[in-house]
């Protein structure tokens, strides 16, 4: 296909991208600049983005002002990781079933999952609190993980199902003819072939879980040691002042595990992994 734009079309496209990127990246840049500046110069009037005596000191002192910072980061990672793993254990077989089997109520069930998708966790937070309380699960990791898992499953199923329906039926039929059972086919054929799709789901699930946990932790947990990073960051809010530079430094460091995971998982999203399977 010939796909040539005129110069002003290019200009518009790049302008659009630039605006979008500025919106997304500006907060990161500002957070980074704030983390480098001494606390006293943060409130200068007029506001300045750059000031004297910029240093990485906050990245050292934050570990002393909030001694449990590493623990919060680990908690965040642990909670989001658990949500992802548990979520996938439910999502993969469910999405496979939805993509392959005709059964009564399939459409209804898919619709139900979609509508659950539309309700955010925040709406259900009070009833959920009641449930957690009566189950005696408050102040535990489970209280943060369980609702997280519940809310990532519908999205995950929809995402993965659309990937699985594109895997040719013949691949399974060939395995079936060769004597493989459904579970064997799922583990040895479908999951490896669907790996790129599963990784996409894993990444979106992890990010969603990472973002969600703030709400659940704030509501269901009051044990300091179990708090994830977003809640732990409140420790930087002192009695008199907020330690903004350390807060920003901690936020940025808290993002790093997510970025690392992203880079690591992205390797698996190889385009054309299915090439050579069938000829369309």
């Amino acid at each position: 296909m010939i796909n040539r734009y005129r110069w002003w079309e290019y200009l518009l496209i790049y302008l659009g991208m630039a605006v979008l990127l500025i919106f997304i990246l500006a907060p990161f840049l500002e957070a980074f600049l704030v983390s480098l500046r001494p606390l006293d110069s943060l409130f200068s009037v007029p506001y300045r983005f750059v000031s004297d005596h910029m240093s990485f000191k906050a990245y050292v002192t934050m570990w002393q002002s909030v001694p449990l910072l590493w623990r919060y980061m680990l908690n965040s990672f642990f909670v989001a990781g658990s949500v992802t793993v548990l979520g996938l254990i439910a999502i993969i077989p469910a999405a496979y079933a939805f993509s392959r089997f005709e059964f009564r109520g399939r459409g209804l069930l898919m619709g139900a999952f979609l509508s659950v998708n539309m309700v955010s966790g925040a709406v259900l937070i009070i009833p959920l609190y009641k449930v957690m309380q009566s189950l005696g699960l408050l102040n535990s990791y489970i209280s943060m993980i369980a609702p997280g898992v519940a809310f990532v499953i519908p999205t995950g199923i929809w995402l993965l199902r659309s990937y699985l329906v594109k895997i040719p039926k013949e691949l399974e039929e060939a395995a079936l003819v060769d004597g493989a059972g459904r579970l064997y086919i799922l583990v040895r054929v479908i999951i490896p072939v669907a790996l790129p799709g599963i990784m996409v789901v894993a990444i979106t699930t992890f990010i969603a879980a990472y973002a969600q946990q703030f709400l659940y932790a704030l509501t269901f947990n009051s044990v300091n040691e179990l708090n994830p990073l977003p809640v732990g960051l409140y420790q930087f809010f002192g009695r008199q002042k907020v330690v903004w530079n350390e807060l920003m430094a901690a936020s940025l460091i808290g993002i790093i595990p997510v970025m690392l995971l992203y880079v690591f998982l992205q390797k698996f999203i190889v385009a054309g992994l299915t090439s050579g399977a069938v000829k369309e």
Binding site: E170, L171, E173, V189, V193, L273, S275, G276, A277, V278
Partner: peptide, 11 residues
């Protein structure tokens, strides 16, 4: 059975 689309396991 041999399928028209080969149906090989790509991985």
């Amino acid at each position: 059975m041999v399928f028209q689309s080969y149906a090989l396991y790509p991985h």
